[in-house]
Simulated assay, not measured.
Amino acid sequence: MIEQFVEQKVYKKKELLLTEGQRCFEKFFIVKGCVHLSYLKQNGMEQTIDFAMENWWTSDFMAFQHATAARFSIRAIERTEVLSISAGNQLELLKQLPELNAYFHMVFQRAYAASQMRIRYLYDFSKEQLYLHFLENYPEFTQRVPQYLLASFLGFTPEYLSELRKKFLS
């Protein structure tokens, strides 16, 4: 029944699912692959703020909710297959299957809690602790995400990340 509300899409490596500034009409369930959510800083540098891989939802959720211009871009890190759902289709799906409200509530509660913990770690951990915590808790990302994106996500320069990797992986 859900299939009629979603659209299957495939994105090539480095292809944009969503572009900052573009109106956001959909959110994405990652079936296979990995993406990163980022924005362009005033200095022109890209800042990665999140990753999503299999069985995760991603979007610019504020822009999705209001059908406004995205403040973030989403780019495929590798070939990525998604199920895309529009806001209208999501509303209709939830009318027909209200049980999914509980599912979406739990998904976003978990995501929000993870976001809160990330903010705490950014304030409480040293850079070394932050890197070690990420390695310990998200080893699948360190294998699939390019080092420059991981450095951006952690708030490091790629050079500093390289130094940390040498220190802890040798």
Rank of each mutant, 00 (worst) to 15 (best):
H66E: 15
K41L: 14
K127R: 07
Q129H: 01
F25Y: 10
P98A: 07
S59C: 11
E92L: 15
K95S: 12
W56Y: 11
Q4C: 11
A113F: 11
A52W: 04
G21M: 09
T58Q: 08
R79F: 06
Q65P: 00
E3A: 09
A114F: 01
V10Y: 13
Y103R: 14
K95E: 15
R79W: 05
Q129T: 00
S84R: 09
K14M: 12
Y121I: 03
Q42M: 07
F168S: 05
M45V: 10
L149A: 04
A67H: 10
E140T: 10
E54W: 08
T19Q: 13
N43G: 11
S115K: 04
L161E: 02
E3L: 06
Q8E: 13
F134G: 02
S115R: 05
V107M: 04
Y39W: 15
Y123G: 01
Y103C: 08
F108N: 01
L169F: 08
E163N: 04
D50S: 02
A151E: 04
A114P: 00
T80W: 12
A63F: 09
L37A: 12
Y138W: 14
T157L: 02
E136Y: 11
A113V: 07
R120A: 12
Q42Y: 12
M1H: 13
K12R: 14
Q42H: 12
V82N: 05
S59Y: 07
V6A: 08
E15A: 02
Y11Q: 00
K95N: 15
S152H: 04
E20K: 09
Y160N: 02
E92M: 13
T68A: 07
F153V: 02
S162K: 08
S152T: 04
R120V: 12
V6W: 15
L154G: 03
N137L: 08
R118A: 04
R23S: 10
M1F: 13
Q90I: 05
E99D: 14
Q22D: 14
Q129E: 15
Y148K: 13
K32M: 05
T58I: 15
I30P: 01
L17E: 09
M53Y: 14
Y103L: 14
Q109Y: 15
S115Q: 09
I30Q: 02
L122H: 10
R144Q: 06
L40H: 07
Q42R: 14
E81V: 04
V10A: 05
P98Y: 14
E163G: 00
Q47E: 14
A76H: 08
K9I: 03
K12P: 00
N43V: 13
M106H: 14
S126P: 03
F51N: 00
F104M: 05
S38N: 11
V10H: 09
E15Q: 06
N43D: 15
